[in-house]
Design a protein around this nucleic acid. Sequence first.
DNA 1: GATGTTATTGACAAAATGCCAATAAGGAAT
DNA 2: ATTCCTTATTGGCATTTTGTCAATAACATC
Lengths: 199, 199
Amino acid sequence: MSVAVAERRRLSPEERREELLQFGHEFFAEHAFDAFSMDEIADMAGVSRGLLYHYFGGRRGFYLATVAHAADGTIAAMERARGNGDTIDVLAVLDGFVGYVHDNAGIYKAVIHGGFASDEVADVETDRVRDYIFNLALGYACIEHPSDLERIALRGWIAFIEMATAEWVDQQAVTRTEFVELMASNLLSIFRQLHIDVS
Amino acid sequence: MSVAVAERRRLSPEERREELLQFGHEFFAEHAFDAFSMDEIADMAGVSRGLLYHYFGGRRGFYLATVAHAADGTIAAMERARGNGDTIDVLAVLDGFVGYVHDNAGIYKAVIHGGFASDEVADVETDRVRDYIFNLALGYACIEHPSDLERIALRGWIAFIEMATAEWVDQQAVTRTEFVELMASNLLSIFRQLHIDVS
DNA sequence: GATGTTATTGACAAAATGCCAATAAGGAAT
DNA sequence: ATTCCTTATTGGCATTTTGTCAATAACATC
């Protein structure tokens, strides 16, 4: 009886990095930050621990790269749904967001929604996603310089859609359309409350 | 020159545990989960590493106990603001919530708002806080068995107030009263949207 | 097929972890 | 005051994990 030993493969740095990020995407979706040693993680990824350190510097670096990757994916999904017209279709973009979370529920909930306790670098990444949505909402309402109250309310609304989407994805108890409309009309409520005309 | 060595103190388990939790409250408010070794943490707390292990089993255990402690504090603050009448004053309870976050901004943002990546036990604690607010909102609207859409919307609203409060505490750019009213009227908007009468 | 580049590894020193027998603080009894 | 006894607290040990780097071997090019 022989143990199946994967032989050494030599990839380009770009390919290897992409492969490892793909693995991190799945790994951190399922396992807590410190649930395994770097040795075990490297084994699961099919590489040596040295390689993980080479590419990401360590556990935290690997985690952060995975967070950044997921943030990129989330924004890209909305970008795609937005299209390249100059009018903003809030329903379409929200649907793009919901689509990404639906297809990547594990990593989204672990990393973007859940986040990592008081880590500045990770916060930068999750905030990138929020800022994208924030600016989209500003553009939709034709606001250039939001007031303090407007900023607070919009950031609150963004948390609303993050939590509600995580919740919806779990059960999908109402239709996707109905759900997206709930989020959109909540945004309109907030605009109305703040006396913002959106025509 | 002599190094000041704190001599060994023998406290009751209850006192020591409380003291260590107090320390954890401050520690995790400022430092990332894995930013220090257990040796360093124990030093800062003024005890041996062995004692930390004895009381909490390790880093994760210590962190989780701190989360639970903060969750208790958050709920207690709302409980206090609620009083013991049988009518629910949403503004008062929200103000109690805001008060706790204001006074404990560091740990709140690190632990309740921020949360820990995909850790079931920590989620149980943060969800305890959310469930308290959830049930409060249900009580306020006289709902016994929320529909799926109502549940999603209310969970979303709770994320709204969590994020908005964290944001408000940072800058306090609008008055506390104005801010609390923003959150309360957003709740009313949601009820209206869902055709829920709150009289 | 030989050669050069560099992606990848294994192994080593240092650090951190988890555990437990030994220690001593502080209350109770004399 | 002094002794005793309980058990909170510690120090140190075996083990695991980490971080680093010189050695190795894929793969492309000639």
